Amino acid sequence: MPRSSTSVRRSSCPRRPPEPPGPTRLSASTTRPFYASPGLNTETYDVRTAHDLVAQGLDRDVAFYIEEAKRTGGPVLELGGGTGRVSWALAEAGFDVVLLDLSEAMIERAEAKRSAEPGAVSARLRTVRADMSDYALDRRFQLAIAPFRAFMTLVTAEDQRRCLDTTRRHLESGGRLILHLFDPRLDLLVGEGPPNPDRGSVRHPVTGNDVRIAVLSRSVDLLRQVFEERWRFAESTAEGHLVREEEEVLRLRWTYRYEMRHLLELTGFEVEAEFSSFDRSPSVYGREQIWVSRAL
Rank of each mutant, 00 (worst) to 15 (best):
L58D: 14
R60K: 14
T166E: 10
A110G: 08
H51C: 12
H170T: 04
A144V: 05
E67P: 10
E192R: 09
A50R: 02
P184N: 03
V76N: 12
L164W: 07
L137S: 00
D101P: 00
V62L: 11
W88S: 00
T167Y: 01
G119L: 07
Y135A: 01
G84F: 01
F95T: 13
R168L: 00
D61R: 06
G119F: 06
E158P: 02
G191E: 09
A55N: 03
A93W: 12
R60A: 15
R129C: 02
A157R: 14
D159V: 03
F151E: 10
Q160Y: 08
F182H: 08
M106W: 02
V62A: 14
L137F: 04
R126G: 00
A130W: 04
E92L: 10
T166G: 13
G73K: 12
Q56A: 14
R109K: 05
R71K: 15
R129N: 01
E92Y: 05
G193T: 01
V86I: 14
A55P: 04
V76A: 13
G80I: 14
P75I: 12
L102T: 13
A63M: 11
G74D: 07
E104D: 09
K70P: 09
G191K: 05
A93V: 09
S87A: 15
D159G: 05
H51E: 14
R185M: 08
P194D: 00
E172H: 11
S87L: 10
L100S: 05
T127Q: 03
D138W: 04
R176A: 15
A55C: 05
Y135Q: 01
L102M: 13
A120G: 12
T72I: 08
E117S: 13
I178P: 12
G57H: 03
V62H: 07
D131M: 03
F141H: 01
Y65T: 15
L77H: 10
A112M: 01
S103F: 04
G174C: 05
T127I: 02
V86S: 04
F95C: 12
G81Y: 04
R124F: 05
E172D: 10
C163N: 09
D187T: 00
I107F: 00
L79P: 08
Y135I: 03
V76P: 10
G74I: 10
G191I: 06
H51W: 08
T156V: 03
V97Q: 09
R140F: 02
A93F: 11
R169L: 14
A116M: 03
R168K: 01
L58Y: 11
V62R: 13
L102E: 07
L188D: 11
T166R: 14
V128G: 01
S122T: 11
A69V: 08
A91Y: 07
V62Y: 06
A136T: 07
E111V: 11
A146S: 15
L154E: 10
E67W: 12
L53I: 04
L79Y: 11
V155W: 11
R60D: 14
E158R: 09
D138T: 07
T127M: 01
D52C: 06
R185W: 04
H180E: 03
T153V: 13
T156R: 04
K113P: 00
V190A: 09
L100H: 07
M106K: 04
E172W: 07
R71Q: 15
L154N: 12
M106S: 06
L58F: 08
M132P: 09
T83I: 02
I66F: 11
R85M: 05
M106A: 06
Y135C: 00
V121D: 12
